[in-house]
Design a protein around this nucleic acid. Sequence first.
DNA 1: CAGGATCCGTTCAGATACTG
DNA 2: CAGTATCTGAACGGATCCTG
Lengths: 136, 136
Amino acid sequence: MATMTAAQRRAEAKAEYDTYLSTCKSRRLLDRLSDKWVTLVLCALAEDDMRYSELARKIAGVSQKMLTQTLRTLERDGLVIRRVTPSVPVQVEYAITQLGQSLVEVVYELKRWAEGHMDDVETAQGRYDRRNASRG
Amino acid sequence: MATMTAAQRRAEAKAEYDTYLSTCKSRRLLDRLSDKWVTLVLCALAEDDMRYSELARKIAGVSQKMLTQTLRTLERDGLVIRRVTPSVPVQVEYAITQLGQSLVEVVYELKRWAEGHMDDVETAQGRYDRRNASRG
DNA sequence: CAGGATCCGTTCAGATACTG
DNA sequence: CAGTATCTGAACGGATCCTG
């Protein structure tokens, strides 16, 4: 298939790049944090250990599919611990690990930046939108 | 429609929650950062001002649609500046703003955490996977 | 109570083609 | 060079039903 050379080149470059991204620690961390619910769960558990249903109530907008999925990956990452008490209706409690706690500190950094600067961002957005209102 | 009461309740709660999330500064910041290319572009521009094509080459895996889209939102957010030089082939240069620079600092914090702890995460993942290999 | 499994709509992001 | 516009497959996330 000599006609596909160009496309193949691009595909290869893409594959290389994907490999790079998947081995990039920062990238992998951001992928985690961007999982819409991860930070919410982490911050909730940073305050106190919680049971599944407590988390579901506390976070309030999450579907149980997403909550379960989030908790699984967090457990797999060693960021939270899952403790099962084999009582009659089983009782599951989630707690944050040391590793998770150290990550929450960084998340708080983010939060601080957000509290301090998102107003500026909003202002900038308003300016931008007004400037581009004339030119549709 | 009395039969929809339950669903309506949930929909309302959901709407309320969405409103809350959309006004939550931290949430909005995370939504930005999680946009796969935002941090790459920001970090690239933190090193040096760059033209569109330079960015495209530097970042190497991005489609020009995504690059443009990313640059637009960053500009709108006041995180980067776009300067057009009306030469014959127009020349566009992008630079980071002070606001953007201050955000990059936080991103570096994330990066530091990643460099320091992602190994632990990886180890945890290995443990988790091995433990769950028996029970499929 | 704490999930697993499934279906399904929306959104995202890449490829492609075209423009000033 | 620096984009814009459109189409489409894949992934995400929610709703729903079911189980130990």
